[in-house]
């Protein structure tokens, strides 16, 4: 039932809200065109197929790079590599963070202490040097990127989830469940987890954004694999050929905008997911559908809630 409501709500929301529609459309276009790169890209992205830094033209819609490659083809193929790496990192970090946080919340006591210690150690180790050292230690490539960003990217989530669980645990309904002798794993699975849904979903989408930008930053610093076409490596090459100084802004702006638009569309959707996961807000919507006007969460209407 709850699941059905959520999905139905999502569908209504998706068609009802402008930001979500905008986000979804952008995302579908970016993901779709990247997925079709093999068929729609006009050129081999790694080969010089034009002059150096050619202004966008009919022959090269997004212009050419400082190496003479077609920017449009690089954008399409680059999206493919960038996106699957980012999604993988997001899935792995969210799972890891959730496992750590729920294990801590379930066992409490010394297990919680140890896991919190580990989490905090990962939080306090400056991640950039760790990333640099790891990146220098491992051969550059997608697997290294995934490993490095997963190892360094989960700790904040674990801390966030744990503090959320802690905060939830103090709530009346959990306390009530505990009082009636409900089993702990049931509390975690039935009471804690669903109530953390919005936080987890928001975190996941944020992790996709984090992974895309972190990947780009690393590649920009030259710590990625410059031989692979990704949006980050496109930026690296634009920088390498001094694109801005030489006026070839299209080699720099295209991958930058690609990253920004992907992150933006995800963030828009994230906002919606966040609201969906919040039971309070779901109830608001049901009420509104039932014709009850209620300016939600406005402190101007103290007793409206009981209407």
């Amino acid at each position: 039932m709850a699941l059905y409501d959520t999905l139905a709500g999502a569908r209504r929301k998706a068609f009802g809200s402008i930001p979500v529609t905008v986000g979804a459309v952008i995302l579908v276009i970016l993901v779709g065109s990247s997925a079709l790169a093999q068929w729609i890209a006009p050129y081999n992205p790694k080969r010089a197929t034009g002059g150096i830094n050619e202004f966008p033209s009919l022959k090269h819609l997004f212009g050419t790079t400082g190496q003479g490659q077609d920017v449009l083809s690089q954008f399409l193929y680059g999206g493919q590599n960038t996106l699957w790496i980012a999604f993988t990192i997001a899935v792995l970090t969210t799972l890891l963070a959730l496992i750590v946080a729920l294990t801590a919340a379930y066992f409490r006591g010394w297990v919680d202490d140890v896991l919190t210690l580990v989490t905090n150690v990962f939080l306090v180790i400056p991640s950039l040097p760790l990333i640099v050292v790891l990146a220098a230690f491992l051969p550059p490539g997608p697997l290294t990127m995934i490993m490095v960003l997963t190892i360094t990217g989960w700790a904040f989530g674990a801390r966030l989830f744990r503090s959320q669980a802690l905060s939830l645990r103090e709530r009346e309904f959990i306390a009530a469940a505990e009082d009636v002798g409900e089993r702990r794993w049931r509390i975690v699975a039935i009471e804690l987890l669903p109530n953390m849904g919005s936080v987890v979903a928001a975190y996941f989408v944020n992790q996709v954004i984090f992974a895309i930008t972190a990947q780009a930053s690393l590649e920009f610093l030259g710590l990625g694999d410059g031989g692979q076409v990704t949006w980050g490596s496109m930026l690296f090459w634009a920088q390498n050929t001094s694109a801005l100084i030489r006026g070839a802004w299209w080699t720099f702006v295209v991958p930058g905008m690609a990253i920004a638009l992907t992150a933006f569309s995800l963030a828009l959707i994230n906002n919606a997911v966040d609201e969906l996961g919040n039971p309070r807000l779901r109830a608001d919507r049901l009420l509104r559908r039932a014709g009850v006007r209620k300016p939600s969460a406005s402190l101007m209407t103290p007793v409206k809630r009981n209407a």
């Binding site: 220098a136 051969p139 550059p140 030259g222 710590l223 990625g224 694999d225 410059g226 031989g227």
Partner: peptide
């Protein structure tokens, strides 16, 4: 041949 960019030290 695969191009690998690394830190100057490495």
């Amino acid at each position: 041949v695969t191009l690998r960019t690394t830190t100057a030290d490495s």
